[in-house]
Design a protein around this nucleic acid. Structure first.
Lengths: 338, 338
DNA sequence: TTGAAAGCGGTACCAT
DNA sequence: ATGGTACCGCTTTCAA
């Protein structure tokens, strides 16, 4: 900037004025400065300017995701980006990969760079490591899982209700032996979905056979194996409720391999691409991921821009049943009942 | 930092030493400083330190993508992130959404924040707007499409060869009337894939019926409509080469709706999730997106860290045919030939 | 309208 | 081993 000022024969301050578009600069001077800027390929250093500038916004927010490459995270990322863009803000995103240490590391790297706020899909059991951020006043919004060990805004799906809705759909189509296949029960969302399953089964007076409840499935292979086992039982389930999309895909794969895809009903939690192209198309309870992301970003910017005095908020984003076929398969007539 | 120094009763410089882990600080002093830091929730400002620090690396790189939420971009993002992490670097990513203006805007926002380098999937026809970055010495790597209007590293897929391979697979299974369905021919990659199609058809002495060549398809709906039209021709194609994954999905959808999914062969460029679960499973030529991303990041860091004196490089990442069934469907016997 | 000087939060150099 | 001081690149305050 000094060089630009020298080349243009003006003071450094005038250059600053030109860059910031302050109107009180004489046009001829302005042109000279502009030319000098181009000639020297000068690019102002935003970090340096923010150092002195009031407000201390950096125009950067951070996003801690499970894995940038999975559809849930990627969609969330995009939704947050769109809102951020409207606030002239850039987004840093990082994959936590379910590694609590990585979450702490990333959060620190982002706060060191003075992100104006953080949106977090937590992988840690406890987020009290963020206490100093809260005290300093950095806005925090939690997504998908509520915060533990501190108070902050959160945006969650209606997991329990959604799971109940999926189970209800299966029951409405005549199923009584409905299996549960889900992720680690220690994950809050998985636990809520399991609760939805239990509640709906109870509400309808249906018995849960403990042999048809399978937790700890977290990839397609283990899910497929579990389904294969379940269907080898003496009294196999006639319908499956899968509580996460990888589990759903694994289940569908297993049914196809067993030649049972048109015999056993499936309703899954979480939509996934091409669910409608499969045969049968897969019935799911979908989360509105874009809306979750947009809401989280909105809450964040309200705190960044508005007062920080707002009370902590919890937004519940409704889930939606999308019947496509697999959940509407009816059970075989039970020969014993004739 | 001043406050920390005051509270600990030491000079500001000692605080700086503690933060940077300089060994020449007496342990008792170090502890006092640490305590003061915690008590005040002090977080050093990385931007400020980089201002004075030598080397002027910010530990941030930027990534300009089509759309954060599409699988190609998301996978690329993750691959770049993994390499960046090994270099203690954070990633800014932004969606260009095929809007040239947005690309320029984003690039500027990132360079203003002093990104150490840029990885770009260009949407613009000409990237000469980046000339000043090149002159300043900011490393640039182009992905998927080569740079125009400036020289820089690039990482590309073997589009022509891959397309030829897909067409070859169809021809190997007896097809002669092979249709081409692709994106805007103005897109470099689409043009290359079309060339691969033309070359392979010529090499095998197969005639291209101009009515079965359809460009400008860029979503599933237009692709599906095009397929429906093609199959209504008097002499419909017996196989389809689709040059992009949305086109492939559209084509598959149309064939299903027409009840022809087991009659008409399809080979697509670009893999997509669940391609193997469809019926028939879809034969594709897959790009190695993770490797593309990792390579791009590697080239970038070589320039960031090593000399900038390297000549511009172009890396070609091979594509791979994955036969899954749809491309191996044989043509119906032609009644006119008996 | 323009400029000089102080300062943002930190580091580098040189004394001590 | 510790501290003083100039300085990074830019904005702010205030004077000219």
């Amino acid at each position: 900037m000094r060089d630009v000022a020298a080349l243009a024969g003006v003071s450094i301050k005038t250059v600053s004025r030109v860059i910031n578009g302050v109107p009180s600069v004489a046009p001829p001077l302005r042109d000279k400065v502009q030319k000098a800027i181009e000639q020297l390929d000068f690019q102002p250093n935003l970090a340096a300017s923010n150092l002195r500038r009031a407000g201390h916004r950096t125009g950067q927010i951070a996003l801690l995701l499970e894995d940038l490459s999975n559809p849930f995270s990627a969609t969330l990322n995009r939704a947050v980006e769109d809102v951020a863009r409207a606030h002239d803000t850039l987004v840093f995103a990082g994959s936590v990969a379910e590694d609590p240490r990585r979450e702490v590391e990333l959060a620190r790297a982002f706060t060191l760079r003075r992100a104006d706020g953080l949106v977090i899909v937590p992988a840690t059991a406890d987020q009290s490591y963020l206490h100093s951020e809260v005290r300093v006043g950095t806005p925090l919004v939690f997504v998908d899982r509520p915060p533990r060990g501190l108070v902050a805004d959160s945006v969650l799906s209606t997991n329990t209700e959604g799971a109940a809705r999926a189970v209800g759909q299966l029951a409405d189509h005549g199923h009584e032996r409905i299996a549960y296949l889900g992720d680690y029960a220690t994950i809050v969302t998985a636990a809520q979905r399991f609760r939805g399953y239990e509640q709906e089964m109870a509400r309808r007076g249906l018995r849960i056979d403990p042999r048809t409840v399978r937790h700890d499935l977290n990839d397609t292979a283990t899910a497929a194996a579990a389904v294969t086992e379940l269907l080898a039982l003496e009294e196999p389930p006639t319908a499956l409720f899968t509580s996460q999309n990888l589990v759903t895909i694994g289940a569908v794969t297993a049914l196809r391999d067993l030649g049972l895809r048109h015999r056993v009903a499936v309703a899954g939690f979480d939509d996934f691409p091409l669910a409608d192209l499969l045969d049968p198309a897969v019935t799911v309870v979908a989360q509105d991921v874009r809306r979750i992301g947009a809401t989280a970003a909105r809450l964040l910017f309200e705190r960044i821009e508005g007062g920080d005095a707002l009370p902590p908020r919890e937004c519940l984003i409704p889930t939606r049943l999308i019947p496509r076929g697999s959940g509407e398969i009816r059970p075989p007539r039970d020969p014993r009942r004739g």
